[in-house]
Write a protein that binds this DNA or RNA. Sequence first.
DNA 1: GCGACAG
DNA 2: ATCTTGTCGC
Length: 224
Amino acid sequence: MEVRALHPWPATPGEAETIQDRLRPLLDLTGPGPAAPRTAAGLDVSYEEGTDRLAAAVVVLDMATLQPVEESVVIGTAAFPYVPGLFAFRELPTLIEALERLSVTPDLLVCDGHGLAHPRRFGLACHLGVLTGLPSMGVAKTHLLGSYDPPDRARGSAADLRHDGQVVGRVLRTQDDVRPVYVSVGHRIGLDTACRHALALSPHYRLPETTRHADRLGRRALRA
DNA sequence: GCGACAG
DNA sequence: ATCTTGTCGC
């Protein structure tokens, strides 16, 4: 699929923040988004200890069967130091490369990280959404910012994630008595719709099948 | 001033 | 992200 070029590339954290602020206005935060996407792509990156070598993996699943439709993996290097809030710049180049090698265009992007639940409202999920023009959402394993009341212990329970007086995401329990995940909007999708898809993609485990598949593909490629 | 801080 | 063994429980 086609993906918008990502230069200029930042040389400093300050420049990276400027890029986020410049792209943020391009976000489409209207509408509920795709109610019944046929396919969803999971994106994940695995790192090699010690070096800056990494593997960016993308696995497209059929939303109805949750079975893989296509895979793409690219070995690359971390393109930026790890800085909370600028995390996307580490993996963006390699993830984009993996997306471009896809022969099909997924209906939804499920990213491992936050979208709007970000200090400048422009996390990885937002960035990938703007670059691809596709609906995107973020499902993060850990909290970055915002306050919330612990959701009930049953699968499907959720609580709003609030920051600066705004709802930037939702803490969602995908399995009974299991640590919740942090869902936030990326691009061209609403929070309710995003949570619905996150839940549908997680029938048996805490994390969505999309990211589970991408994770396995990524670390498998890192060894080969 | 002291923590917290996506992966 | 990754380093790491056994262990509790269905």
